[in-house]
Design a protein around this nucleic acid. Structure first.
Lengths: 346, 346
DNA sequence: CGAAACAATGTAACCGATTACATTGTTTTT
DNA sequence: AAAAACAATGTAATCGGTTACATTGTTTCG
């Protein structure tokens, strides 16, 4: 209950009969301080239980060594992997994270941005919510020259770097693979065209169709929020189609899985009647039967890249805003859910 | 690149021809300041783009309005759900979170604790790593009277509240259910007995056996890290057993799923040859076939409770350390993986 | 009408670091 | 031996708030 006084550099200085300046320098390992003095300072600090006061420094330096992170949601395998990547880099560089989730709502994203701003983060990493329409809520950051880096769900802005994969290429490969398996009538399940990732995946899907002389039909594109439940609902819509499609390419694995489960329940054989491909390489893709063909998404790496890029920027390295976009490698992982040929012989 | 000067209360005071004290009070909505003055202050603050400086306040008040959270890992459905719960409460009460993951290593947990301590969190929420042996790394918190609340993976300490479910009861129910389904030779897969959750689940398992006059066999308890891969390995061990067990109760769903997949591949029919039960109600439990019987774990609620309890403590409410443990309700969810009787008729 | 009570605002010390500039003491150079 | 160079340390202003205590002005009441 009683608040024991904190030990400060003043206390150390008094005890050692040196000035606070010397103590301050010693603690930062400034080469200008003699080794002997440093040792004395370190030892006494240890002994007295001194702890560094970040606020005093922040107040003085007008920096916080804090990075804000805004994600749509934390409870997805992909996002928590990204955050693990961000954290490892940030911690290594002495930065602290403030993490907030927008819960896919533009409104909460705005509130989070405000909180981050008022907490004076040195920089901010953002993956946009489903229904975010514009970047107005980030303009205070731009005005104050606080670097903002987007990852995964990005937006175009002259002052921002984006870290992402080539979604278009991934979708193109997945779709082409389905076509190579003999599929001709492929449904694509995706989410709001407000987000680049879904726009690009749709574009890749269309491109693949076009390159293989297959017609594109607007009705074959289903839009939902890509949750597992939404996948189950999409299955309902698919079953109404006439003729039935012979493949489904979903913009994420969760949705694909929900859809597969519902279709299987309805008697559809996968991949025999309908081939499946997802996106993200979520662990669930190796649990569903048949295992889901998908696009591997390097989440951890993405987190590392985004954080490293931001911190470099903060440290003045690479401060030229030349880097507009950082593309990470992704790859198609072929599993049973799309192997028509082989599975027929099984 | 140029750093625009921040607006401070001094700037506001000068422009309005009042003292900084008045401005400070006005901004905090102190009733002692006249309404007219307050309005002027608020308007000017808005106009000049003033933003509150937390560090100055923190420096002065010796508080940070920050809560530290240490979890074993973020990329699990359960943990990210808990964190979502923590976040909602903390944000509502004006607290900021610093989240760090120990990656199941005592060493990293120690480092995280140190970081939190040096960042002067007002309080800390902890779920322990696999191999943490003691609480020495938290003693600085105890010494400075910084409240520490454990959740899920807890430890006994006179000054700490714990938030968890009745793991023993959950395990007892799951095991009893398997026994009721006719299983007599049940394997239990769990993790290190350093953690309460695993100790308690093992105890519940044993208790259920004893209450039904079934012998307990040490060889039927497999210890691993409960990952999906570890589950697959456990399957190998199980297949060596003679006679084969007729049921498996795993201490988490991921491990159960890994084990099931491997066993199915080896030709074991679930639940016919071997019934399964898991723990946590991870979404994957409804994807695996057959769907996994499990114990529902209220993660979001747990996060809310832990955060609310901590903040109450910080606000002086409920400061009596009477609350030692908060138990949340959990429940058995029966699915196909354990239904021997019904599944036989299917 | 003057004292007491109160409302509104001001003064100044304080929180704990950083750092430009000044000072002191020691070594090297000429 | 005096001047120059350098190493080590010290002085003091500064960051932007909070708040105990002091001050001023206005109202109330005997």
């Amino acid at each position: 209950m009683t608040k024991p006084k904190e030990v400060t550099i003043y206390d150390l200085a008094r005890k050692l009969n040196v000035s606070i300046a010397t103590v301050s320098r010693a603690l930062k390992d400034d080469p200008v301080v003699s080794k002997k003095t440093k040792k004395k300072v370190f030892d006494l600090a240890e002994e007295m239980g001194y702890r560094y006061n970040h606020f005093a420094r922040n107040l003085r330096e007008q920096r916080t060594y804090t990075i804000g992170v805004i994600v749509p949601r934390l409870n997805s395998y992909f996002m928590s992997t990204v955050i693990a990547g961000i954290e490892s880099v940030a911690n290594n560089e002495g930065y602290t994270l403030i993490i907030s989730q927008s819960s896919e709502s533009a409104e909460k994203e705005l509130a989070s941005a405000k909180t981050m701003f008022n907490n004076r983060v040195d920089g901010i990493l953002v993956s946009l919510a489903y229904d975010t329409e514009n970047l107005n809520h980030f303009s205070p950051f731009f005005q104050k020259n606080i670097p903002l880096i987007f990852f995964d769900r990005v937006a175009d802005h002259p002052e921002c770097t984006s870290v992402l994969i080539d979604n278009r290429k991934g979708a193109y490969e997945a779709t082409s693979h389905l076509i190579a398996q003999g599929c001709r009538n492929i449904v694509h399940i995706t989410a709001t065209p407000k987000r680049n990732v879904y726009v690009d995946r749709l574009a890749g899907y269309k491109q693949a169709l076009a390159d293989h002389q297959l017609p594109f039909d607007e009705k074959n594109v289903l839009i939902n929020n890509l949750s597992q439940e939404a996948g189950a609902q999409a299955a309902g819509a698919i079953l109404q189609m006439n003729p039935l499609p012979d493949a489904v390419f979903a913009a994420n694995d969760n949705c694909a899985v929900g859809c597969m489960i519902a279709l299987k329940k309805a008697g559809i054989r996968i991949p025999h009647d309908m081939a499946f491909a997802g996106f993200n390489n979520d662990p669930v893709s190796t649990v569903i039967e048949p295992n889901l063909t998908t696009i591997n998404y390097p989440g951890y790496k993405m987190g590392e890249m985004a954080a490293a890029s931001l911190i470099n920027h903060l440290n003045g390295v690479n401060s030229i805003d030349a880097t507009n976009t950082i593309l990470l490698r992704s790859e198609l992982i072929i599993r049973a859910s799309s192997l028509k040929t082989r599975s027929d012989s099984e």
